[in-house]
């Protein structure tokens, strides 16, 4: 099953300039893990040393923040979109 991950501008240098990367994954956690194995340099940008998503990084599954869904266990369907968005314009929880 394939989902699309949208990459924000400052991270596209780690995805060979791609704005959208297609990866497999039944959940957000799986999709992100597969994204990291394809583009390992993304890992330290998105995840902290404790293995959690960094505080200022928001992950959306189909336009809704995964913190308000099942977090990394949020289920995905074929063709779904996952977005990695820095909280650069507000949105501190």
């Amino acid at each position: 099953m394939s989902v699309q991950v949208r990459i924000p501008t400052p991270l596209r240098k780690f995805t060979a300039g791609q704005e959208i990367v297609s990866v497999d994954g039944e959940t957000v956690g799986e999709a992100l893990a597969n994204l990291m194995s394809e583009h390992p340099e993304l890992k330290a940008k998105i995840f902290g040393d404790n293995g959690e998503i960094r505080r200022f990084v928001n992950v959306f599954a189909n336009d809704e923040d995964i913190r308000f869904q099942e977090k990394m266990d949020t289920k995905l369907s074929d063709g779904d979109q996952v977005s990695i968005v820095p909280a650069i314009a507000g949105g501190r929880s």
Binding site: P10, L11, K45, R55, F56, V57, P86, A87, I88
Partner: peptide
């Protein structure tokens, strides 16, 4: 210090 940051309203000038 990085292009991908969470500092409100600030700019990483090199990028």
């Amino acid at each position: 210090s990085d292009a991908f940051h969470g500092l409100e309203g600030l700019k990483h000038m090199p990028s």
